[in-house]
């Protein structure tokens, strides 16, 4: 479930990035890297888990699934937080700089 959540996040972010490419004013590219990196790593984790559990891997307990979904959504939220911090730090549109300068005037 964690893998599925991050894969969906990665696909949505890639589609959003492609829509505006080659312009990347909102730095969506960063989100793509984060989610694809995590998706690949969780995929490896899933392969090793499958090798251990075999068919049982596909029939998790509902409580376990819910916890994994909760974890996946939290991981997506953390990725968004990292992206917002990066976006505000880089300030590609110069909006923060402008807002601060306007306040001073």
């Amino acid at each position: 479930m964690t893998l599925l959540t991050t894969v969906f996040a990665a696909v949505i972010c890639t589609a959003l990035w492609y829509k505006n490419a080659p312009k990347d004013e909102m730095k969506i590219g960063i989100l793509c890297w984060i989610y694809w990196g995590a998706s690949l790593m969780w995929f490896v984790d899933a392969v090793f888990e499958y090798a251990e559990l075999k068919a049982a891997f596909f029939t998790p307990a509902p409580a376990e699934m819910l916890n994994d979904l909760y974890l996946g959504l939290s991981a997506v939220a953390l990725g968004l937080v990292i992206w917002v911090v990066f976006l505000l730090a880089k300030d590609p549109r110069g909006a923060i700089k402008e807002a601060l300068l306007h306040k001073k005037q």
């Binding site: 991050t6 890297w33 984060i34 694809w36 995590a38 953390l78 990725g79």
Partner: peptide, 10 residues
């Protein structure tokens, strides 16, 4: 970026 992002979420 892929390695750092993935490692952070993991």
């Amino acid at each position: 970026n892929m390695l750092l992002g993935g490692s952070a979420l993991l």
